[in-house]
């Protein structure tokens, strides 16, 4: 396992974080350092162990199908950059 510049590029694209070409090898070095340290987990025998999910042994609670929310368009939009006519806006998207 080694994270090369191409992998850094792919990860940064997936994460939508702009990384310049000049930064790629710094990133690769850092990530390799951390992932190399994490490799020690391979020593642990986890055969037959069910992976944990979530942080609790509680049971899921559900909500009733009732309308209790909405109708707060002003509050929903109040922190947005350049909202218009009740909409959020983004650079034009071609589908």
């Amino acid at each position: 396992m080694s994270i090369d510049n191409a992998t850094v590029r792919r990860i940064a694209t997936l994460a939508r974080i702009e990384v310049t070409d000049a930064e790629l090898s710094t990133w690769a070095g850092q990530l390799n350092g951390i992932m190399g340290w994490i490799e020690q987990l391979k020593e642990v025998n986890t055969d037959g162990v069910a992976p944990m999910s979530g942080g609790t042994d509680l049971k899921l609670t559900l909500r009733a199908d009732q309308v209790t929310d909405g109708g707060i368009v002003d509050q929903v939009l109040m922190n947005a950059t350049e909202p218009q006519d009740g909409y959020f806006t983004v650079p034009k998207v071609v589908e």
Binding site: D69, G70, I72, G86
Partner: peptide
Amino acid sequence: SKAKLFSGAPTEFGAEPNTQVSFVDA
């Protein structure tokens, strides 16, 4: 359903933009 899958905002068709949105949906 009357409400959304994970929030209490309504699901009705054809409402004014962003009026059927809770903080969760946003």
